[in-house]
């Protein structure tokens, strides 16, 4: 049952196959492309600030898929039907988290290659950036899932979720971008730890949120 659901969720959200399309990834690369135009082609300046720009672009790209992430399936009665078949809301949300991350984390990491080339990020900085995004995107996905589930029954949910994600994602951004400035691995450990805690927490918070959404 879990695997059937994961397959279905992936088909829904994966870029190029589902209705989610490749929008977040395109958006991510577009930001990296715009930045040199905005600040001028100073290689030194770009190498210094480019990593931070990539992180901000990743954070903003994480907001884009949230609108469809949970609300649509609540409206469809999809979660209700799964519940009748004995599946716990927490399990549904754990599967949703996995599908959400798979459909935006790895594509974003891949898109970092062209983005880094555009921003003249090279060598060790590039490695730390890649590792940081790998460690940080599960956390961003977990925050996104919790927010999407909490705001699913609100009319202005989509606009609100973007606003809510930004402050909650600050720790990941601070340590992720901080690792670039100091060129150290310790901050990456912090990013991974924050992500891990969020991933462990998110299915329970989101599951409780969709249960609560039924009651009104």
């Amino acid at each position: 049952m879990i695997f059937a659901l994961l397959r279905r969720d992936l088909a829904q959200f994966f870029p190029f196959t589902g209705s989610g399309a490749a929008l977040p990834v395109v958006f991510f690369v577009a930001v990296a492309m715009l930045f040199p135009f905005a600040v001028g082609p100073d290689a030194n300046l770009m190498a210094k600030t480019g990593g931070g720009v990539v992180w901000i672009a990743a954070l903003l790209a994480a907001i884009l898929p949230l609108e469809k992430l949970v609300a649509r399936d609540i409206d469809l009665g999809f979660f209700d039907q799964l519940r009748l078949r004995g599946m716990a809301e927490e399990a549904m949300m754990a599967v949703r988290l996995a599908a959400h991350w798979l459909s935006f984390g790895p594509p974003l990491v891949l898109a970092t290659f062209p983005a880094a080339a555009l921003l003249k990020i090279e060598g060790e900085t590039f490695q730390i950036l890649l590792l940081g995004l790998l460690a940080g995107t599960p956390g961003l996905a977990a925050i996104g899932l919790m927010i999407a589930a909490l705001t699913a029954s609100l009319r202005a949910g989509a606009a609100l979720s973007g606003l809510l994600l930004i402050p909650l994602a600050l720790p990941i951004l601070i340590f992720g971008a901080g690792a670039l400035a100091r060129q150290d691995q310790v901050s990456l450990g912090f990013v991974a730890a924050i992500s891990l805690a969020l991933v462990a927490l998110a299915p329970f918070a989101a599951g409780a949120a969709i249960r609560a959404a039924r009651e009104n």
Binding site: R8, G18, D75, L76, G77, D80, Q81, L84, R85
Partner: peptide, 15 residues
């Protein structure tokens, strides 16, 4: 026994 529910929401993916 198991339960089946039919309401105004189909549970079927619209796309």
């Amino acid at each position: 026994g198991a339960l089946a529910l039919l309401d105004e929401r189909t549970g079927l993916d619209p796309d």
